[in-house]
């Protein structure tokens, strides 16, 4: 069952950030002659400034107040988000769920918002990809992962996942089109 498994993998989840082992920037890839020729006539000069930023689903929309603060969050960079936003996220979490104590991962409000306020998607190169599959947590995000139910459970489900049962799943469990097994994976447009 979802709830029990959440507890079991909590340690793996909390330990995820310590799994980075080394840094090895790859060499830039070589360019084919044809692409080089095609690219020569194109201009790519100039300076580009951040307009939007996103990793985990619905973080800005759930935790940041409307209007100018949303733009400010989108213009911020992950290494600075925790210091600027953890407190704001915690206030918002407690406004959403004033009865929050801990969640199914055993996280206090400060711990959950400390994780979420740095908006990066943790991805494993060695484990199966999932937002949460009962065993693995935050090893990436598949198109088919029911990410909203995971987030609702962590926000509203309480320490056992059983609190507020009307709020811990939206009961939309899959996409309206099937994904393809091969590149480019996403379904054709409607």
């Amino acid at each position: 069952m979802k709830t029990l498994n959440f507890k079991i993998i909590a340690i793996a989840f909390i330990g995820a950030s310590s799994l980075f082992v080394s840094c090895d920037n790859t060499d830039s890839t070589s360019e084919s002659n044809t692409d080089q020729a095609a690219r020569k006539g194109k201009k790519f000069s100039g300076t580009f400034v951040q307009q939007d930023q996103m990793a985990r689903p619905a973080i800005n929309t759930v935790f940041i107040g409307s209007g100018a603060p949303k733009d400010a969050f989108n213009a911020s960079i992950p290494s600075e988000m925790g210091a600027s936003y953890q407190g704001i996220f915690q206030s918002r979490l407690l406004a959403l769920n004033s009865g929050y104590t801990t969640n199914a991962l055993g996280q206090t409000a400060a711990q959950l918002t400390g994780l979420l306020s740095t908006d990066v998607l943790n991805v494993s190169k060695v484990a199966p990809t999932t937002f949460f599959d009962g065993t693995n947590v935050l090893t990436g995000r598949n198109a088919a992962d029911d990410v909203i139910d995971v987030e609702l459970l962590l926000i509203f489900g309480g320490p056992t996942g059983a609190s507020n049962p009307g709020l811990t799943s939206d009961h939309v469990n899959s996409n309206d089109k099937s994904f393809t097994a091969s590149f480019p994976y996403l379904a054709s447009a409607w």
Binding site: S22, D24, V120, V123, S124, K125, T139
Partner: peptide, 8 residues
């Protein structure tokens, strides 16, 4: 070469 990466 890291086993995990963070992406945004």
């Amino acid at each position: 070469t890291s086993a995990t990466i963070s992406v945004w």
